[in-house]
Amino acid sequence: MAVPLTVEFSGGLETLFNNTRSIKLSLARSDGSDSPPTVADLVVHLCAKVMTDKRSELFVIDGFHVRPGILVLINDADWELEGEEDYVIQPGDQILFASTLHGG
């Protein structure tokens, strides 16, 4: 089951994604099953298909875990309130990855 969503990058993270600030995509589960995808599936997809910079360690560490210091907002809410990587993506969701690691 593919789910349409919007993904945004900010705080300098856009430089890893060809300076794109916002993309729309349709996402299915990475294991091929029919259940709806989670944020973990999204991160795998972004690393494999969307990221243009080769330094994936600036986005994920220890496999496909979002690097500490990168905030994830699901429909503007802190992903810590939504189950983080286990959050099941709903159609039309807006997911923002914002780096706090860049200079102020």
Binding site: S10, G11, G12, T15, L71, L73, D76, D78, L96, A98, S99, T100, H102, G103, G104
Partner: peptide
């Protein structure tokens, strides 16, 4: 984290680059 969230929710105009 709160500074970035504050800037985001308040839609402040800032520049981020390294």
């Amino acid at each position: 984290k709160e500074i970035v969230l504050y800037a985001h929710y308040k839609k402040l105009d800032y520049f981020s680059t390294e």
